[in-house]
Design a binder for these strands. Sequence first.
DNA 1: CTCTCCAGTATTGTTGACAATATTTACCCT
DNA 2: AGGGTAAATATTGTCAACAATACTGGAGAG
Lengths: 226, 226
Amino acid sequence: MSELTSPTYTRADEAFDCLQTAIVKGELAPGEKIGELELCSRFNLTRGPLREALGRLESRGLLVRRPHAGVKVVSVSASELMELYRIREVMEGLAARQAAERMTDQEIADLQATLNAHERMIDEAQGQAYYQAEGDYDFHHRIATGSRNTKLAQMLLGDLYYMVRMYRYRLSTSTGRPQRALGEHRRIVEAIAQRDGELAEFLMKRHINAARQNIEQKIEQGELTI
Amino acid sequence: MSELTSPTYTRADEAFDCLQTAIVKGELAPGEKIGELELCSRFNLTRGPLREALGRLESRGLLVRRPHAGVKVVSVSASELMELYRIREVMEGLAARQAAERMTDQEIADLQATLNAHERMIDEAQGQAYYQAEGDYDFHHRIATGSRNTKLAQMLLGDLYYMVRMYRYRLSTSTGRPQRALGEHRRIVEAIAQRDGELAEFLMKRHINAARQNIEQKIEQGELTI
DNA sequence: CTCTCCAGTATTGTTGACAATATTTACCCT
DNA sequence: AGGGTAAATATTGTCAACAATACTGGAGAG
């Protein structure tokens, strides 16, 4: 999932990827206390590499450890999820600005093609929130890497997105507003294509702000319980 | 250094802290290839806990590992350092805004006291860049935690600051402009005390931007070689 | 009947030995 | 003499047994 590009793929990498996807997909429920031996038998690992992977995951904030007391998946409250969106707002705003300054013409063309594919997916699989989420993820992923800011991309792709995706899977029934989001995506790409970094940043911040308010509203209405 | 609050302090925590401070202080030079057994004898550890700590540090971007080839301390180029400041600009801007909304009156009073202490340090130990850097670090630290945004504080304190401090130590001879920075700090705290989040964000962004330009200029003049 | 203390158990933390792989060095071939 | 290949070496990756600690259940006292 992450280090497949590396020539050799170590057991610890395997453990890391397995656990990460398991957590993100919700197969390991937040707050659930998990034993090491249980994980070992589940993923065919031994405790050495497993513990190394646990260290990495703890460092990324996906789980918490208490010495001699075990490991449990992190549980994020509603308010903490909102805080994550506030962070995304400023960081992805920066990413969009730098992407506008640095993406190649080819990358921008690919990005536009991605949006077209996304539009087809919305038409064909109406309400299939899963594919919508994947399309959305792809869009933000491309802009993060397009920023050419290594650390920024690392923080977005390695830390924030996994935590957000945790919730995408859990309450996968619709982030709602797919057409609206697509429109916002198009305008962001337009700004990037025109190399208008300032506008791209503004539009991206507003886009994520809207997504946050959408979720906030649903939580208040009790449609989404966390 | 980080988990000393925890009741029990595991070997892996010890290894993590030792290595982190060693990297930050420059005792382990960037780009330097380091062997596990060497580290074990140096810090009186065994390889198990050490490897767990290495996983954490890799995840935080302080070192890179290639399977079977060893570990080396990450080396950050000048341009990458500038990118770090761009990230700090938006993230600490957010932190300042949220701190203005959420810090207690007591915390704000403590923050002002910190600045007074900082002023004395500048007067007494003129040019002692080390203490200036410590004061600066303390200021930004308080605002990050004052934001009450767990993940934001975690990313700033756990990821970014250590990378920046790496350079503070290396080119410890003056970030320059101590009085000027202090004045900027004061104005930020003023805005926070008045609960003006918008202004606090603006001033913080400008403050970090100025620091970035200061370093950039020195690099161009060849005073700081990276 | 409840609360506390103690012992047993199960789980985590640690260690040292074993296996696999990249680097290095030496040798052979061109 | 230079380059390339192959064996040797040293380092990393992995494993299974040992030690230390937190949780659980029961027994006794209030």
